[in-house]
């Protein structure tokens, strides 16, 4: 028994020595990122210094990225873990962090980069009881759909990179400034393009769009879900249809992660336009980057606004 144990320990030690974590700065900086919008930012800011691995491909629900064991070795070797925060990733990230056994990326360590730092949240619930559905205790986490708040995430990623790898500070800050300049120019363009959206009422499947609505002046009428994470009841659908008819709501947004049947029914019953919009880059074709995603969202929505 003792000799068997000794053999096992010897093999473990040899494997650890052979394949164990290489020094963090030996090659590119290894960043694991939860969602594709942040991955886009990290590539822009990090440039050639970073190797970005994103857990999501873009078509997943932001709260429902599958917890694959194949993520674990990547996270085990990561220098930074970049996340949306505000409990957006609560259903998959804590267990993955636990399994990855990498203290660098655990909560409270420099490698744990919560991009929501400095973002003013909306819809902070008064109660986190499950009677309100699967609410997020710190507020709605879908702030990335507001490009002005998204800029804070860009800065947070840059700050984290500079703090951990100060030798590349000049490159990171230059890349950040270049990217923010492009983003600022696009924001000007988007705000001009989105003028027809002012005051336009809409419903969506999940409560993804409060920041977007606030930024571009839309009127968020309601959600198809009864509560966050809770499927609609027939009564809720009937009530929503009646209210939408009464208030002449012209747009129904379906996020690709949700089934089409109910949004389509609501759109047909109310005469509203049904539009499929991504919630992160890659959610639909030709939205590989954050800028392309926002372009797509705004132009699709503007096209759906009925002529007056």
């Amino acid at each position: 028994m003792t000799s068997t144990l000794l053999r096992i320990v010897t093999v473990m030690a040899a494997l650890t020595a052979l394949f164990g974590s290489a020094p963090a700065h030996a090659a590119k900086i290894r960043i694991v990122i939860t969602l594709t919008d942040l991955a886009d930012f990290a590539r822009e800011v990090g440039g050639d210094h970073v190797d970005v691995f994103c857990l999501a491909t873009g078509i997943e629900d932001t709260h429902g990225v599958p917890m694959k064991p194949s993520f674990v070795p990547r996270m085990n070797r990561a220098d930074l873990l970049v996340l949306v925060g505000l409990e957006c990733e609560h259903s998959f990230l804590p267990a993955l962090i636990e399994a990855s056994k990498n203290s660098r990326i655990e909560y409270g360590h420099p490698g744990y980069v919560d991009c929501s730092a400095g973002v003013s949240p909306v819809e902070v619930p008064l109660s986190t009881g499950h009677s309100q559905g699967d609410v997020h205790p710190y507020g709605n986490p879908h702030y990335m759909l507001d490009p002005l708040r998204a800029r804070i995430a860009v800065t947070n990623i840059c700050n984290a990179l500079v703090a951990s790898f100060p030798q590349y500070q000049a490159d990171f800050t230059r890349n950040r400034d270049v990217y923010l300049a492009r983003l600022n120019a696009k924001i000007v363009e988007w705000e001009a393009a989105a003028k027809p959206l002012k005051g336009v009422k809409f419903v969506s499947y999940h409560l993804h769009w409060p920041y977007f609505a606030e930024r571009f002046g839309l009127d968020y009428f309601g959600t198809i879900e009864l509560k966050p994470g809770i499927d609609p009841t027939p009564h809720h659908i009937a009530e929503l249809i009646a209210d939408m008819k009464a208030q002449r709501v012209p747009i129904v947004i379906r996020e690709p992660q949700f089934p089409e049947k109910v949004p389509k029914l609501i759109a047909q019953q109310t005469g509203a336009s049904l539009v499929k919009l991504p919630i992160m880059p890659g959610g639909v074709p030709r939205t590989e980057t954050y800028i392309k995603e926002m372009d797509y969202i705004i132009h699709t929505l503007v096209a759906a606004v009925p002529a007056k």
């Binding site: 003013s120 002005l148 800029r151 800065t155 950040r176 923010l180 300049a181 600022n184 120019a185």
Partner: peptide, 22 residues
């Protein structure tokens, strides 16, 4: 809230290329 709104528009040193209207 008002300050946050201002900060979001003022931080990150917008470049002279273009400024968001806010």
């Amino acid at each position: 809230d008002a300050l946050k709104q201002q900060l979001e528009t003022a931080t990150n040193a917008p470049t002279p290329v273009a400024q968001p209207p806010t």
